[in-house]
Amino acid sequence: MTHTDTAPMAWGTNKVTVTFGNTTALREVTLDAIPGQVTAVVGGDGAGKTTLLRTLVGRIRPQSGQVSAPASTDCGFMPTGASGVWQELTVDENIDFVAAAHHLTGRELARRRAELLTAAGLEKATDRLAGALSGGMRQKLAFCLAILHQPRLLILDEPSTGVDPVSRVDLWRLISRAAAGGAAVVMSTTYLDEAERSSTCIVLNRGKALASGTPQTILTHVPGTVTTGTAPSGPPELSWRRGRQTRSWHAGPARPGEQPILADMEDTVIALALADQRQES
């Protein structure tokens, strides 16, 4: 991963490997968490995203490699799914509970509560049970809980999964605001457009980092050649559909007469996965 002079390395993982029994969940994965930046960890189910985030916050001890993170009181962690909130408590009670854990009281708590709930659009839902909120509202509440104590490292495990597009825009604004406030934000996602909007991202596939860097760097380092047409130009296992268009990939440079396309993140990640498959076989 590349660093610019203005972005000092703060926290992260360095070549961490995590195994569970015979399964290698992470293989020498390096991730930088930089203050003021959003680092996106992208990949599908089982790619190792949750394992990487849990390793970063110290909940999983890696077999090898180094982890650096601030003290746990300076970390905010939002777990995936519904587990980030207490379903049987109201919105306000959820805030009270987490505030108590962080010894946050009085005027400071009142200020944080008002600021976060307003930003999340939850100010009129304070008496509702968290379990009765829509998916989007619940995730926004979970976000508020993770950031209540103003952590310097904020780790979000799939904050936007199952969240509708309108709430996703809200969530992205909350995440942006945390980074703008100086926090190092690390978030996992299955949405590639969120990777494109991050400052840096890491593409995970079956425990391995296929690529990492700024989205621009990743897009300019597509392996091989991607072309588009109405039918596959090579073996079907090396092609995929994008609407009515068919993309084709091969490992070499563009052949004479071939018009490579400027791959977007979707095409790039598929090309990376195909290149990786080819290398392993």
Partner: peptide, 17 residues
């Protein structure tokens, strides 16, 4: 294909197309 990694997602969409 919510939550599916891009290559597997491409394969499922191949089926749909």
């Amino acid at each position: 294909t919510s939550g599916v990694e891009p290559l597997a997602r491409a394969r499922l969409w191949e089926t749909v197309h």
